[in-house]
Design a protein around this nucleic acid. Structure first.
Lengths: 205, 205
DNA sequence: TGTACATCAGTGAACGCGCGTTCACTGATGTAC
DNA sequence: TGTACATCAGTGAACGCGCGTTCACTGATGTAC
């Protein structure tokens, strides 16, 4: 059966999304142009009407991840003027909820042969991750100003510890194939993070 | 030139090590039987004298990782009767030092299509990781008994936080290709971990 | 409103390539006599 | 100590397969007149 004709912008979006889905659900080794095409509902060679080659598919998927993350970061700041601790917790919960999608990032990071000239891709990934870390650090600095977070710590180090709350969850989620209740487990570590970073009651320092 | 003949036990060890090295240095996509053979110094078909197929190579590399980790855990407990906090710090430093080798684990975890029937492999990986987490948790329980770690926290949650100190380092090390000083960065998070887990001075609880 | 044409997304056959694996053969090493 | 033989690690040609990609063609959609 012949697929219905669609405008290239629509197909590009569908293809990027399908690429991302396959990476997240089945990993990089399962990412073939045939698999992407099948998911979109067209024939493999049809992809080349919308993207130059397979590399371009992955780049497009990365862009999709990036914009999604940016949206997520913005959402955590809404409504504005909330407590820094609250915003961090919101961000933490959000990330655990969308762990299914987030898991695509480490899969790309750890599977790709990034030594083989794909400088653009690595730079793009680094930008996403650093953007995330910088955003966390900014919230932490703000919390330090507000007085709800202690001032005798490096914001960047605290941001990395925050990152470290999420990563083991993604890691174990992968290994256990969703059998372990990683969300609950990850949340159990949250009080520890708070104890490490929160300003002590009645202390201004 | 013909390679010198070696006993199969020796070759098996060399092959497992070469497989591990390639995964750690270049990632799973670069792991081909040709690459392993070249590194060992024999011809691709020669590998089949020592291992059944490519899958068996990966399994052997996993076993090598597992025994290395076990050795690392034991080393951290020597000399015995040390303070639990000291042992955790030693383990932390050790892991950062051997991050080059450790990075093979997430590369396998995140790149393999583990849905495709490789139940044995996933179980093996899970065993390695859980063994590590259990060991950390055991040290933490001991620290709680000794009184140097606070008792109002789940040992398993604290173990995962410890794991989270190391993972971002491996992650960023991958992305930056060793350009960032991830060790220094990771160490900066250590005081935060201590603050979250250490018993307060003069408190017995 | 109807016709002719340009545009362009979708198709399927064909390709070259790299990969994992097999297999008959080679030749070095160690053992039996 | 020397010879005959069994064992087994290493070799290279050959294979089948899946994959990414090309290309001439089809036919639907929208536009000009």
């Amino acid at each position: 059966m012949r697929a219905s004709k669609q405008r290239t912008e629509i197909r590009q979006e569908q293809i990027a999304q399908s690429t991302l889905d396959i990476i997240a659900e089945q990993g990089m080794p399962a990412l073939s142009v045939a698999a992407v095409a099948q998911r979109v509902g067209i024939v493999p060679s049809g992809l080349y009407r919308h993207y130059r080659d397979k590399e371009a598919l992955i780049d497009a998927a990365l862009d999709a991840i990036a914009s999604r993350h940016t949206a997520g970061l913005k959402a955590a700041d809404q409504p504005p003027n909330r407590d820094a601790v609250d915003r961090l917790e919101r961000l933490f919960i959000d990330h655990l909820e969308m762990i299914t999608a987030s898991v695509a990032i480490p899969r790309i990071v750890f599977s790709r042969d990034i030594h083989a000239g794909h400088h653009g891709r690595r730079a793009k990934l680094l930008k996403i991750v650093n953007g995330f870390l910088d955003h966390i650090a900014a919230i932490i600095v703000q919390g330090q100003r507000e007085g709800c977070l202690r001032r005798d710590m490096e914001p960047a180090a605290a941001a990395r510890l925050f990152f470290g709350l999420i990563q083991p969850a993604a890691f174990l989620w992968n290994l256990s194939d969703g059998m372990m209740d990683v969300k609950t487990q990850a949340k159990a570590a949250w009080p520890l993070f708070l104890r490490a970073t929160k300003a002590e009651k009645g202390t201004t320092r």
